[in-house]
Structure formats: structure tokens, C-alpha cells
Computed example of a mutant assay.
Amino acid sequence: MGVSMATAEMWVERWERQQQRYAVDREERFTVIADVVEHVTAGRTRPLLVDLGCGPGSLAARLATRLPHADIVAVDMDPLLLELGRTHHTRVARFVDAEIGADGWIAALDLDRPLDAAVSTTALHYLPEPVLRRAYEELAALLRPGGVLVNADHLPQDGAPTAEIAAHVGRRRAARSRTHQHEDWASWWAAAARDPELADLFAGRLRRLPAHGGDNQLTVSRHVALLRQAGFAHVSPVWQFGDSHVLVATR
């Protein structure tokens, strides 16, 4: 089931390029997340972070560079992306195979102390609202007082006119940055499916694809409401471009 370092490096690099099509100002968004976590963990000798829906470790790798003394647990349910992350980012994080919000997923993290931060980028929109609500509640219980949950994602505005304007602003920014010249999500996965070295992992992925899929389409205000109901005292976006947000909830 393992892959070579060269194969992992090639596919992770291609992943990084294709993801630029979908996250407006992706590197800036990563930087903002790291800024938030750096601020919240200032003075702590060994902060504990969880990366939710980590994929091949893009966010975890950037956090490890900014916070080299942090312990990072990176969780995802996709066996192919996890293996790419484990191989390419060996020293970055402890990668965990678990489905966010499913029974037993918290135990699978095997945490030895309260979290300082839970972070996610372009991942939680896949969760149906009841699953997301439960995950927010579970994460609130895991975070230390003053800890944060940071969710960076495309979150629509309330009201169709405003939502469409925000989405248009994001699309125009993407057009100016020419990120749409990169291969897209479907092309990346189609190419990965043809790589013999990934065949077993790809088959495992197909067996484990969640039944729901898609996008929960929850607005910014709905995320804020769910987070407050889960026990977070303060919730607010700290960065936005178009409908791309970095939403921070403080325990």
C-alpha cells in the first residue's frame, strides 16, 4: 500500500498546483491560519494542533514550518491522500485515518492533552450539517480555554445577491492570478487512477467514499450559529476575499 518518495513528491506537487484553482489566494489564506495559531500558542513550548481533513498535508506542512515545536495530528479518511502525506511529509505530522464526526473518530486521534488549535481548510463543507454540528461540539470539548477552531473555506454570504457578488469577486481574482491554467480536480484524480503505484490506494479510496459527498452550502452566519451553540464564546471571520473566509472560534 505504500508509495515511493519520488511518487509521493510528484503527486503532492501536482495537488498543490490544482488546488490553487479552488482556493482564492490560497497561500495568503494558509498564512493567515498560521498567524492565528502562532498568536494563540505564543509562549507555549509544545502546542498541540489538529488538522481536520488534512488531505496530503498541505496545511500541516505550512504550520510545521511556522511552528516547528508544535505537535500536529493530521486527520483524513482518504487512504490515498493520507499515504501521500505520510510519505512526502514524514516529519510534519502524525497522520490519522478517521472520518470526522463519525463514531470513534475522537478516540482515533489519541490525544494526550487538550488541544491548542483545530484547523481546517476547504474540507468541512463536505460534512452534512448534523455531522458538522456534532464535530463542532466534540472539538469544543477538546480545546483548552483560549484555544481556537480555525475554518478556512468558501462560505457563502446570506442572501442571493450578496452571495453572487462575493462569488464573482473571488472568480475575478482567480482569473487575474491565472490559477485556472492548472489542471483541475477531476483531471488530477483521473491521472492518479492511471498510476499503477497508486492502484491499491485508489481502490481503497473508492470503497470508502462517503455516501453524502457534495457541499453543505452552509452560510457564514450558519457556521457562526453552530459554533456558538457548540460552546465557543467568540466567533468571527478574520480574513475574507470574495466568499473565501478564515473563520475563527475561540473557546
Rank of each mutant, 00 (worst) to 15 (best):
R21K: 12
R21V: 09
R21S: 05
V24H: 10
D25I: 06
E28D: 13
E28Y: 13
E28H: 14
T31N: 10
T31G: 15
V32D: 01
A34V: 08
D35L: 03
D35S: 12
V36F: 04
V36I: 15
V37A: 08
V37M: 12
H39Y: 09
V40I: 15
V40P: 02
T41A: 09
T41S: 12
R44K: 14
R44F: 09
T45S: 15
L49P: 00
D51C: 13
D51I: 11
L52S: 04
G53C: 11
C54M: 07
C54T: 15
S58T: 15
L59V: 03
A60T: 07
A61T: 13
A61Y: 05
R62I: 06
R62Y: 10
L63R: 05
T65D: 09
T65G: 06
L67G: 05
L67N: 05
P68W: 10
H69S: 14
H69Y: 09
I72T: 09
I72P: 02
V73P: 03
V73G: 01
A74G: 10
A74R: 08
V75T: 10
L82V: 06
L82T: 07
G85H: 02
G85I: 04
R86Y: 00
T87C: 07
H88V: 03
H89N: 12
H89C: 03
T90L: 07
R91K: 10
V92R: 02
V92E: 01
R94L: 05
V96Y: 07
V96W: 08
D97H: 15
D97R: 14
I100M: 05
A102R: 10
D103N: 11
D103L: 13
D103C: 05
G104W: 12
G104Q: 12
I106W: 01
I106S: 04
A107R: 13
D112A: 15
R113E: 02
P114S: 02
L115H: 06
D116K: 06
D116C: 11
A117C: 06
A117V: 08
A118W: 02
A118G: 12
S120R: 08
T121F: 00
T121W: 02
T122D: 09
A123N: 01
A123S: 12
A123R: 05
L124A: 04
L124F: 04
H125V: 09
L127Q: 11
L127N: 05
P128T: 10
P128L: 11
P128C: 10
P128R: 06
L132W: 12
L132Y: 09
R134F: 01
R134L: 11
A135P: 07
Y136T: 02
Y136S: 05
E137R: 15
E137N: 00
E137H: 14
E137A: 15
E138W: 03
L139D: 00
A140S: 11
A140T: 07
A141E: 13
L142D: 01
L143V: 14
L143F: 07
